[in-house]
C-alpha cells in the first residue's frame, strides 16, 4: 500500500482506489470497503453503489474537469485528483477550482505520480492529502512542505497575495 500523507502527517490509508472503470461486480466481491472510484463508474452504477455497505469517493483524471461534478461534489468526503505524470499540471487547476469556485471543504487527495518535489505546490493549490508514489521516502517528503517560508501569490492556503501582507 502506498504511503499516505494527510494534513502533514503520515497516515493509514483507509480507502481503496479503483483505478480502472471495471464492472460493478467488484463491489459484491469485496464488501464493506471504502472505494475511490472513477467518474465513469460513479455515473454508470448508481443502483449498485446505493446498495453497497462501504463509502464512496471519486477520482478525476487530469483531463476531467471538476466543474462537471459541481452539483454532486459536496456529497463526497474525498475527491482524488490524478497526476498521470508529475509534469502534467492540470490537476493543480482542478484542485484550486474545487476549493475556490466550488467551495469544497472535504479531503483533496493527490494520486498517481506524486513526488517529493511537487508536494509544496500541490498543497498551495488545495491538496491536503498525498498518496505518494511507491518509491518515495515519507520522511523526505514531509520536509517538502517546508521548502519555502513565504510566497508571492495568494493561494488556497493563504488567499492574500504577498502585496496585501507586505
Amino acid at each position: 500500500m502506498p504511503t499516505l500523507i494527510k494534513d502533514g502527517k503520515v497516515e493509514r490509508n483507509d480507502w481503496t482506489l479503483l483505478k480502472t472503470a471495471t464492472g460493478p461486480e467488484i463491489l459484491s466481491a469485496v464488501p464493506g470497503k471504502n472505494f475511490i472510484v472513477p467518474l465513469q463508474f460513479w455515473r454508470n452504477y448508481q443502483a449498485e453503489i446505493s446498495e453497497y455497505s462501504g463509502e464512496f469517493a471519486l477520482w478525476l483524471d487530469s483531463h476531467e474537469n471538476v466543474n462537471d461534478i459541481a452539483e454532486e461534489v459536496h456529497s463526497f468526503p474525498l475527491i482524488a485528483l490524478n497526476f498521470p505524470a508529475f509534469a502534467d499540471g492540470r490537476s493543480y487547476t482542478n484542485a484550486r477550482e474545487l476549493r475556490e469556485r466550488l467551495g469544497y471543504q472535504g479531503e483533496i487527495r493527490a494520486i498517481g505520480d506524486v513526488l517529493r518535489d511537487q508536494l509544496y505546490l500541490m498543497s498551495r493549490c488545495g491538496f491536503n492529502a498525498f498518496e505518494l508514489r511507491h518509491d518515495q521516502d515519507a520522511d523526505v517528503c514531509l520536509a517538502a512542505f517546508e521548502d519555502f517560508h513565504t510566497n508571492y501569490q495568494g493561494t488556497v492556503v493563504e488567499p492574500l497575495p504577498l502585496f496585501r501582507r507586505r
Binding site: 508529475f86 509534469a87 502534467d88 499540471g89 493543480y92 487547476t93 484550486r96 511537487q118 509544496y120 505546490l121 500541490m122 498551495r124 493549490c125 519555502f148 510566497n151 508571492y152 501569490q153 493561494t155 497575495p161 504577498l162 502585496f163
Partner: peptide
C-alpha cells in the same frame, strides 16, 4: 515577475 515566480498552479504548463 513576482506573480509568476513559483506560481503553484502554473509550474507544469
Amino acid at each position: 515577475r513576482q506573480w509568476s515566480t513559483f506560481h503553484p498552479e502554473f509550474a507544469f504548463l
